[in-house]
Design a protein around this nucleic acid. Structure first.
Lengths: 234, 234
DNA sequence: CGTGTAATTGAATATATTCAACAAAAGTGG
DNA sequence: CCACTTTTGTTGAATATATTCAATTACACG
């Protein structure tokens, strides 16, 4: 049911002790014996691009950690629109607010195929009581969410539309492997940057023409960081 | 020295057990005996409008809780400018990142005379080890910072400059006592809303002419919430 | 190979910024 | 308490920038 709603294309029970990205994940500092305290199943899910992890206002029993891929967090505006307030990638945690018994504050949607771990909140609560090691990681994740939100505002919601798009492309280029990245939809770009999809499209099209970004096949691009940073105004 | 740098106009050692706003503060859930664990002094400071609590990149040994007044958090942009990313009021905590050993991420400045409690981070760490009661409050503060940041983005950084100013005035009116509030400087408004001070000024002047806000003496105003919400587009 | 979705582009319009001038308010020092 | 200086707010006019809406064009997928 739950798995159905979130449109998993594959899933499996997870052994966190063997996790290849544990250094990046919420459970980074846990020891062997800490894992004995996990009594509820942690499942790993694979989701298609476009799949929804959870919806704003839902009362969820789980947090997610992102193993790979890219997820957007959208929040409803009082005027009826939606605004993308953050992008999550490997190691980021989604739905922390559920640990406080609060409904999800965002709708979380995969922007590309993603792999996530679904962690029941009881697992986190229990581990947090039993061992102080999780505590610091939890605080760090919360702080990272604050930092990301603040940087989002200062970097992506200020300046001309061209500069905003340039900064977003820098972000994508810096986080993509080998500097290669997929462009996100122009509508999403607009929702991230607080501009219209047309303005986003115009800026992207210009950057293509001016070779600030170059197509390298199968929808992937590389960016000229120097040129982009310059257009971003820094 | 420290007290000098933050330009305190008065200060005194604080007995948290007697705190009149404890229900709102970080130490809300603590019991009598928990306070025996506090070995370092918590001081209460009064600051003038314009005083700086701390500066971005400083490595501070304290967090602050705000007892009264209004504080802005400014963050440097990569282009050299500054953007106000949050406003803090009664019960809010500033400088949580210092608990993780990180430098402050913002410059915190009083927008009106404020009263704050200055809490050495050792006090928080120690209490947090000894009692689980602080833990939940800490998580809540962190989550509130995230929520505030997200709402800031969706509510104050979207739409026309007129709508943004209307939303900011709504915010001020809702949080002021008896719906009365002081207008903040137009330059600060611009920095909050991502517009120029001239655009902010134009919108404010219009709202005054149209009686969306009314002067009630000594620099204080009341707002017509219906009209303002309407102008805010909701 | 069509068909629908997403991206691009153009032209008209709306909106915000810039820069300059002036007014109002808030300090400052007798 | 008053004159003076400085800062802050307001407004106008020219310009730059972004939005809107409509018309194509490119592209992915069955």
């Amino acid at each position: 049911m739950e798995e159905n709603r979130i449109q998993a294309v594959w899933q499996g029970e997870m052994q966190c002790t063997d996790c290849k990205i544990r250094a990046l994940a919420l459970f980074a500092d846990l020891h062997e014996r800490d894992f004995a305290l996990i009594h509820r199943p942690i499942t790993e899910l694979g989701l298609d691009s476009g799949a929804t992890l959870y919806r704003q206002a839902d009362q969820g029993p789980v947090v997610f950690t992102l193993r790979s891929g890219l997820v957007k967090l959208e929040q409803a505006q009082s005027n009826g629109g939606q605004r993308i307030v953050r992008l999550l990638r490997q190691g980021d945690v989604a739905g922390l607010e559920s640990l406080l018994g609060k409904p999800y504050n965002h709708t979380a949607t995969a922007l590309e195929p993603v792999s996530v771990c679904r962690i029941p909140k009881e697992v986190v609560s229990r581990l947090n009581q039993e061992t102080p090691r999780l505590f610091k990681q939890l605080m760090s994740r919360w702080q990272k969410a604050v930092d990301d939100a603040d940087n989002w505002l200062t970097e992506l919601s200020s300046g001309s539309s061209r500069a905003r798009v340039a900064r977003l492309l820098c972000y994508l280029a810096e986080h993509g492997e080998h500097g290669r990245f997929s462009l996100i939809g122009r509508e999403d770009m607009g929702s991230i940057l607080g501009i219209t999809k047309e303005s986003a499209s115009r800026a992207v099209a210009e950057f293509k023409r001016e070779r600030y970004i170059t197509h390298v096949g199968s929808g992937r691009y590389t960016g000229n960081l120097d040129l982009l940073e310059n257009a971003a105004g820094r």
